[in-house]
Design a protein around this nucleic acid. Structure first.
Length: 236
DNA sequence: TGGGACCCCCTAGTTACATCA
DNA sequence: GATGATGTAACTAGGGGGTCC
């Protein structure tokens, strides 16, 4: 390690800060008895205004500023070093506060999504119960699927579309589904609905935000326009 | 052209002192 | 007046980049 001028001064127990125009005491022991003097308001004010414009000093500017302030260039350099350290410390506090706020918002959002998920699961359970109880007396989905409009039964399920409509009508009559959202009869999303429902079944209340986001980001589960009868068919 | 010496500057952490509640 | 907390000028250690020989 190279020896700096300051170290040479320190070995002689001299205050290297003291130059041709010493501001403070000229000679002193290292640290012990340091003549620590706060800079004046005018000095601080000028230093602050320059720091605001640029947190680092050109060597020439440093000498010029030191002359203006009646300080040693090293004092100006040290002030800027300390000022940068203070700024960084404050900045870290600000960043920490900002991150904490973001975290709180996310945690809040997570809780609300968790509640929404629970609510949806309860709705699903109700739908399942309704479909299940319809087997006791009321026409079941199977029976609806196997009946024609005039009451005769389908032997081989060839009239699937008609049966589908009738099932929708039956569920609509019970207030289970909204007819405006049950237009997708083609089975386009059948497989993915099934997958999504399987996912729902696998997730519990301890699901992580990432897991919820994975489901949500597909825009399938919570998209009302795609909430159709096939969605129910796979659950039943 | 590589390398050592020197200088200057930086950051991060520490020390000593002044100030204030 | 004593004392602990806080702010800050000055310091140390370690490292990087530039220049000179």
């Amino acid at each position: 390690m190279e020896r700096r001028k300051e170290e040479c001064y320190e070995e002689e127990n001299l205050d290297y800060v003291s130059g041709p125009e010493p501001l403070f005491a000229t000679k002193r022991k290292k640290n012990k008895g340091t003549n620590t003097r706060r800079f004046s308001d005018e000095q601080i004010s000028l230093l602050e205004s320059i720091f605001e414009a640029d947190s680092k000093l050109e060597p020439r500017r440093k000498v010029q500023l030191a002359r203006e302030l009646g300080l040693q260039p090293r004092q100006v350099a040290i002030w800027f070093q300390n000022r940068r350290a203070r700024w960084k410390s404050k900045q870290m506090e600000r960043d920490l506060r900002s991150l904490r706020e973001d975290y709180d918002k996310l945690a809040c959002r997570f809780e609300s999504l968790k509640e929404e998920k629970q609510s949806l699961l309860m709705q699903l359970q109700k739908l399942n119960d309704l479909v299940g109880t319809s087997r006791d007396g009321a026409p079941t989905e199977d029976s609806l699927m196997n009946q024609t409009a005039d009451g005769s039964s389908y032997k081989d399920g060839n009239c699937e579309t008609t049966a589908q409509v009738r099932l929708e009508e039956e569920l609509e009559r019970r207030g289970v589904i909204d007819s405006h959202t049950s237009t997708d009869v083609g089975g386009e999303y059948g497989d993915e609905r099934h997958d999504e429902l399987l996912k729902i079944g696998q997730l519990d209340a301890s699901a992580t935000p990432q897991e919820l986001h994975r489901l949500d980001s597909g825009s399938i589960l919570f998209d009302p326009s795609r909430c159709n009868l096939h969605w129910l068919n796979f659950w039943a």
